[in-house]
Design a protein around this nucleic acid. Structure first.
Lengths: 221, 221
DNA sequence: CTAAACATGCCGAGAATACGGGATGCCCTT
DNA sequence: AAGGGCATCCCGTATTCTCGGCATGTTTAG
């Protein structure tokens, strides 16, 4: 995020070509209007559906930035994202939507969005967001940022350390690789029965009753 | 991020108390100066080391926002972060540093920072960042945002055409919970054989030959 | 329209697992 | 010396999986 014009914002060289995919007339007109008055940014195309944009992509020069609404009729924005990127790998997609639900945000990011702004944001934020994106920065609404941070924080939490002994962890790890007990036994140079016993204890400790549950417990926390 | 004053920024009710932990005189003075002129924000304390701040924390009322430099002499900002949060769980920490290295960013987030701004950012960005944070948003420099996005994107990416259908994913997910095929079948209201068939295809697609391998592939990439 | 992709259902044999026992030896702490 | 935790080994049985087929109906994309 940048709350004010970032000091490190170079003139972004030439003109920035932009496409807009937005079904809402009012909103798209507002954007068209503000981009028209903006120096160095040029709205080249405006589509009312993802299908229309995807159809146009192979025929025209892809823009640097594609502003994409998620709440599109027909093919939704999320589904369209991978397609867009497939056809225009060099274009950066700026998602612009009303929905700040966690799943949408995650899906958008996972599918390659470079920015995620909300329609409730100031229109100026869109302009700045476009410049951010072409300069290799991210344009993300601060509320969405917060959500991402919260999610992020929960991932790298390794410490709850199960009470597994190192031997047990070792065996569970190998099983999680898809190896079967027999293989593990051979690789460790111990008996199948030993592995089996270890696994039994792992299940007890982890309170599960099969390998799948144990692996899930392991790779999650 | 918010590139312009966020439209959804309410007056943030009362005064915002802020502490500053920064060893660089010039910089801390600059911040003190700009916060002094800022309405509704009050810089209550200013420390030159994490130790000093930690010593003061139990004695005074913790502020809403703590601005923390990472490049501190003695105890570094990263090490101080968990301590700060332990003693002042309600305070939000805004990291303000020159270092935008990936490891620092990740460490700061993992340790509970609510914001990450760079000293190269406009001073106004700090003010807006403070307001963002108390309003439950995140204050993150857009370059850092981009980095987080890039990292984020790599986690849930199935690089090969591991394209599981939604049904397949659903089933794999349930199996990863420790459920057995029969349970999954009952829960989905379909035949055991159907589940079995789906699983067979999952193995093919993921190039594994047992559940453990499939779950591992799923939860990692 | 046709082929492909998807979801669904079924069978059977052999492989692997789950889990209840029981046992031995080592090392560490009390 | 005793007890506990750990790693090791063994057995039998019931359960579950794996995987090879085969087959049908629906939806989708070309």
């Amino acid at each position: 995020m940048n709350t004010a014009p970032t000091t490190t914002s170079p003139p972004s060289s030439k003109n920035i070509d932009v496409w807009l995919i937005e079904d809402n007339r009012h909103f798209s007109e507002a954007i068209e209007c503000i981009l028209d008055t903006e120096d160095g940014i040029q709205l080249k195309e405006s589509f009312r559906s993802a299908e229309a944009a995807l159809k146009a992509l192979p025929k025209k020069t892809p823009p640097q930035v594609i502003i994409l609404d998620l709440g599109l009729p027909g093919m939704g924005g999320i589904e369209a994202l991978p397609e867009i990127i497939k056809h225009a790998p060099k274009s950066q997609v700026l998602v612009l939507t009303t929905d700040d639900g966690r799943s949408k945000v995650l899906a958008a990011i996972a599918n390659g969005a470079s920015g995620y702004l909300l329609k409730s944001d100031d229109l100026d934020a869109i302009v700045s967001g476009i410049r951010d994106i072409v300069d290799g920065r991210a344009a993300i609404n601060s509320r969405v940022s917060r959500m991402i941070l919260d999610i992020f924080r929960k991932i790298p939490k390794p410490p709850p350390e199960a009470n597994l002994t190192s031997r047990e962890s070792e065996i569970l790890c190998m099983l999680a690789d898809g190896k079967i007990k027999k293989e593990v036994a051979d690789l460790l140079g111990i008996s199948y029965y030993t592995v089996d016993t270890h696994v039994k204890r792992i299940y007890k400790k982890l309170q599960v009753n099969n390998l799948s549950g144990a692996i899930a417990r392991m790779s999650q926390q």
